[in-house]
Structure formats: C-alpha cells, structure tokens
Amino acid sequence: MALTRDLLDIGRIYHEPTVGDFPHGRAILARFPDAARIPVPSHWNIPELHGNAGSVEDWVRIKRSTLVLGVKKGLTLRPNGRSAHFIAPSTSNGCAMACAYCYVPRRKGFANPISLFVNTEAACAAIARHAKRQGPLPEPDLIDPEHWVYDIGENGDLSVDAALTDGVRDLVALFRDLPNAKASFATKAVNRDLLAYDPRGKTRIRFSLMPETIARVVDVRTAPIPERIAAIDDFVEAGYEVHANFSPVILYEGWEADWRELFRQVEAGISARARAQLKCEVIMLTHNAGLHAVNLGWHPKAESLLWRPDIQEAKVSEGGGVNVRYRAGWKGRWLARFKALLAETLPDCTVRYAF
C-alpha cells in the first residue's frame, strides 16, 4: 500500500529466534522475502542499533530500512487515568515516522525503528481477562461515559503498524466484542485500510494535530495536517470514535495565531456529525536532554523550537526520568490561554484532559 511505500523500504529485519513460531511473525517475514534476516537474542539487545552513537546520522534511513521483530514478555496492564483508564500491553515499540519530540527514543538510544511484537494473541487474551475482571464502568467520567478505555498504542503508531501486520486488525476486533471496554490510540498517519476494520464504535482514534507550519519542522515523515483533518469524517463514518490530540503544544512567537487558524480549519473541515462527537486532549511539550543531544545529530532545526532553557525547567516524570517542561507558573497561564482560544474558535470540542 502507499503508506508502506512512502515510509518503509525494509532491507533488514532483526528478529528474536522464536518469531517464526507465531502466525503474525511468519506473515511479516513473508511480506519481506528479500530482506536480510539477522537473529538477535532480544529486541532490546541490538548494540549496532541502540548502542551505536554513529546511528544518529542515519536516524531516518534506519527508520525506513530496518524492522525489529520480537515476542512481548511482559503482558501486564497498568492504570493511566488521563487518555485512558488503562495502558494495554504494547504490540509495538518505535515508529517509522520521526517526530523530533517523541519520548520513545529517550530510552532506546541512537536508533528507533519499528519493533513489532508478534504474539498479539497473548496481548489480546491479557486485555480480555483484565476487562472481564473490571466489570461495568461504575459511572461516566471524562475518559468515557460508559466503557473502560484501554490505550493500545502507547509506544508506537498503530496506523503504520497496520501496514505491516494484521495484529492491529485483531485488536480492533477484540474490543468490538468486549461489552465493557473500548480501545484508543493516537496517530499521525492516515491509513485508510483501517476503514474496513468495522470497529462499531469500540475503537477511539485520536488524530494528533498541530499548526502545519510547525508540523513541517517537527512532525517528520508524518501525514500532512490537512490530510489528517480530511480523514476525520471518513473514520467517523466507518464506525470509529474520532478525537483530536492537540499535542504537543510548542510555544514560540506567534503560536496563538497559528493555533487559532488550526481550530478554524478543523471547524470548517469536518461534518456536523464529526463535530458532535469530537473531544480532545491537550498536551504541552515535554522534552529531554538526551533526546535533545540525539536530535542535534540529525535535525538541529527542530531543536530551536523544542529546546528553550529560557522558558523551561527540569521535571521528574512518573517513570523517574528527568525531562524538561515549560516553567510551572507560566505553563498554567499558557495552557489557560490555549483552552480559551479553543473555546472561542472550536466551541463544540470538549477538553477531556490537559496538562
């Protein structure tokens, strides 16, 4: 499909030894018969990728040409409380796209291609068991009025993964039949193959949106913002719940005017039906010194927007990592201004959460 041709030209596949024991593993390998196959003990233990500082200069080429296949060991679910009630076991890690602010490569080091986990059936079974234990959602909340929501794409972009594996289709089918649960994932790609998955309202797609002028700098290899907006109606018609993920909000001279224009584009670009069900989340930029150093090796222009020590401060994340965010007092004022702009320009769009 076009999405694969534009983003991926797989020439080598690193894979754990047992990948071929799984149907999805065999199918993915068969899809790329000419790719070199390189056995590795673990998808996390590939020194020539993750431990090789020289890989930074080939950041985008590696994303295009390299695929990693593994078996997901940990299948635990953990509470979230922001975008979803729970974070589901990841079926992928890393991405073919190259957003300069992405948090995933902060842990991976010097190369961050897609890693696909081929034991999707095990992840689906873990989710189903967990949902059964939860029972009905006790009462409506800001996450969802009637279902427990599971984020199924925390560490990758499932729209792109779906161009490589039928595992994403399996996940959508799982939630279609779970009476008390709904899937959710954010995306910066438009994969129209997903329109045939028949989600029946049980999968929420969150299209990430930001002003196009900034996206052209920091959202490397992603679908253009107008294409994402234009896809919203089609995904609503196909049975998805579609929300907006206004993320990350990056501060620069003129940011308010650019966001106001984006909100106008959304208002004018989607149908009344789509607007009626549209909600959003708002996430102010968080950055990281390690990622800043990596980005300087391949995309320093982005860092002029992302790395702003004059208005940022250190922050310890929930996972214990040290990141930087906009200074607390100012961040609150800027976030309030952002929400006011949204209310003025796109009044039907409810903010589910913002931070």
Rank of each mutant, 00 (worst) to 15 (best):
A293Q: 11
G156I: 09
N155M: 14
P33I: 13
G11E: 14
G70R: 09
K108C: 09
A173G: 13
F338M: 07
K72A: 14
R107Y: 13
R78F: 12
I152M: 03
L346M: 04
R78I: 14
Q277T: 13
P226F: 08
P33Q: 07
E227R: 01
E227F: 04
E154M: 05
R64K: 05
L262D: 10
V316F: 13
G153E: 07
N119L: 11
V236F: 10
S159E: 06
S271R: 14
A354Y: 04
C280A: 11
C124E: 02
K331T: 00
T286K: 02
T66Q: 04
L306I: 07
Q265G: 04
L137W: 07
L3S: 06
P140G: 06
N180C: 02
L251A: 08
A162E: 11
K63P: 04
A257L: 02
L69P: 01
N295F: 01
R192Q: 10
R78E: 04
Q277A: 15
A230N: 05
R169Q: 08
C99N: 01
D151R: 10
I28E: 03
N112W: 09
V266K: 05
L164K: 11
D141S: 05
L251Y: 11
A223T: 06
R133G: 12
Y252P: 06
M210L: 13
R5G: 08
F32S: 05
R228C: 04
F355D: 07
A96K: 06
V324C: 06
N119W: 02
A128F: 00
P136L: 04
R64W: 12
V56M: 12
E154C: 01
E281R: 03
R12P: 14
L296C: 03
E146N: 09
L341G: 08
T76V: 06
A88H: 10
G297T: 15
D258S: 07
A125D: 03
A238T: 05
R78W: 14
A173Y: 03
D6N: 02
F117D: 14
T91W: 00
N80G: 01
S115E: 15
F338N: 06
T350Q: 13
K202Y: 02
E154W: 07
T203H: 00
P211S: 03
S55L: 10
V249H: 08
R264V: 12
V190A: 10
T18A: 15
T222P: 04
L305S: 06
G321T: 15
E313M: 00
V56I: 15
L137V: 13
